[in-house]
Design a protein around this nucleic acid. Structure first.
Lengths: 339, 339
DNA sequence: GCAAATCATGACAGCGCTGTCAACAGTTTT
DNA sequence: AAAACTGTTGACAGCGCTGTCATGATTTGC
């Protein structure tokens, strides 16, 4: 706790101020934009800071000023490139506004998510971004009283605590149903991954079935594979699905692009023609799907934009502006060659 | 700056202490593990904290204690799943040790990387993780004096500032050369992406050529495509490469799995047999490569382990232990069906 | 039974910065 | 010429917590 005068110590604002011959507070103002500081004083201070190699201590700044310029982000996973994209969008916008990201990954575990939120809150972030795996009631309560802007991202189908940025997965499912029906498919199946962790996938399937129902069509088959979505899961699932449900004009709506790509690979290795024998549709619009020999029919989910919008919403809230609670970034159906 | 006694204010340690009938410092000790605190006092304090819904303020804690329990991470990209994997490993280990991650993404831009490091350092992190795009001399200097543990990750081929965690990309390239030669391939080509941003890819290619040279073999062709690696780039690059360099026993070493998968797709759409007409090898061991109808021959890069080891190394350094400066996590050649 | 060691607790100061309010010079307004 | 600004600066206190050292209460050793 001693303030050694050895020059090893990182220079503090006080030292910069002394070097520039001004008071601490003037130095502080000069280094933060320079409002209400004479031009030459400003330059003198900046000069001194540069010379001493001054690195401000934002911990102290945040503590004194009561606002931290850090934004906490809790995501369920990073393996899924979807969240990496969102994170990218968030980082870009926030960094640009002088904020920094504290990251937590919940692994789709509500317990862990809850703990992470609580821990990240100890840093007194200026905002919070959540892609809820399955928000606990406790968490919702805590956040409601925590008095900081919260953006819940990915889907807008559920009621949000504060801000909600994403798209209607239900709507996306319906859109795909309409598209496939419009292309003349009447034999429809669903292939999904473990949905207990992925409420968005559930919503899409629901929307898909709704869309079919509107035309009086029912799913011919639905197969849920255990485990998180993956290409391998898609291949294996397709194999199983086709066991009880022969190809030949069958269209399979997959829970996402990874699964659909797997399905495509299975078709390939079995010599099934796509979409003749087996039509395929996914969700997300991942690059890999579009790079297949036949581009995948899917729905683009604009992940990076979700991140950017969430960041923008939080920043606006921090500035005290009122923001519309629901931000629908929409989606776009990509008419590929697989359905 | 006023301490309103309105109960809106977040409870502070002082309030918890008062509620528990102890001094602030005792409360502090009780809430941090409880060393040197009587058992019943400890329980009383924890009780009070729970009742008041106390959330510690780590900004204050870090400022007072002189150590922040945040670790700064600067990565060149998140689009590349490779870095997402590393990040995951880092997060897991650090979170487990009670540390949190502040994230910056440089987009492979050395300027931006430099600025990010400087900014993140203002949070007085306890450690720093870097996957250097191209460390500036200035940055190296600053970090050398910054007096905090720094882990440079991904490759161990270059001299590091402090800790180095990764694998020898040069070695990986050589290993693949040896493997392909061992399989009898004598017509070898290289297909890569824009290497100005990716020194690791350069090292692999170098190693590959070294490996060939040891057997007196030279590359028949090398094609560098502009832009970051992607599946599409792989397909297009392969098309171009095969223009001047006909298939038929040709083995193409791709700069990474994304490119190799693209190459595979190209072969598929052209009806080329793999590996008969065209053999393919990549790098990373991504799931997508292994899920292809024919699993990709590649080298597994253990990204998550790199993250975990980097975290462990930093944590050890924070505890004051001495750590070996270079941590080689190794790699593993995956004998797929494409070469 | 008394010195020495151990345990539990607290007073105090300080981490490095910023908000608030006041002061003072130089300008403009009336 | 007085009043009212405007622009620039600083003194002061305090953000919420922890390290250090000191204190009294207990236990231990011989």
């Amino acid at each position: 706790m001693q303030t050694s005068e050895a020059h090893e110590t990182r220079p503090t604002l006080a030292q910069v101020a002394r070097a520039a011959g001004v008071s601490e507070i003037t130095a502080s103002r000069a280094l933060r934009g320079g409002a209400r500081v004479a031009r030459d004083t400003l330059e003198r201070v900046q000069e001194a800071a540069r010379r001493l190699n001054y690195v401000p201590n934002r911990l102290a700044g945040a503590l004194a000023g009561g606002q931290s310029r850090q934004v906490a982000v809790v995501l369920p996973s990073l393996s899924n490139s979807v969240f990496a994209d969102v994170l990218k969008g968030l980082e870009t916008r926030l960094e640009q506004a002088g904020h920094h990201l504290i990251l937590g990954v919940s692994n789709y575990d509500p317990q862990r998510e809850e703990r992470l939120i609580a821990e990240l809150l100890t840093w007194r972030p200026a905002g919070l971004v959540l892609a809820p795996a399955n928000s606990t009631e406790l968490t919702r309560q805590r956040l409601a009283t925590a008095d900081l802007p919260v953006a819940e991202i990915m889907d807008i189908d559920r009621p949000a605590i504060d801000l909600s940025v994403g798209l209607s997965h239900r709507g996306a499912g319906r859109a795909m149903a309409h598209y496939l029906l419009g292309r003349g498919y009447r034999r429809l199946a669903y292939l999904g991954h473990d949905i207990t962790t992925d409420p968005r996938a559930v919503a899409r399937r629901q929307g898909f079935e709704d869309g079919l129902a509107e035309a009086g069509v029912a799913l011919e088959a639905a197969l849920l594979m255990p485990g998180p979505s993956s290409v391998t899961l898609g291949s294996q699932g397709t194999a199983r699905l086709l066991g009880g449900c022969p190809p030949g004009g069958l269209a399979v709506y997959c829970s996402n692009d990874d699964v659909a790509v797997g399905a495509f690979f299975h078709a390939l290795s079995q010599g099934l023609s796509v979409p003749g024998d087996l039509a395929l549709a996914g969700f997300n619009g991942l690059a890999i799907g579009q790079a297949l020999p036949q581009p995948l029919t899917t729905i683009e989910s604009r992940r990076e934009r979700i991140g950017e919008h969430a960041a923008a919403g939080l920043l606006a809230r921090m500035r005290g502006e009122t923001v519309q609670p629901v931000d629908d970034v929409g989606f776009r159906l990509i008419t590929g060659a697989t359905a």
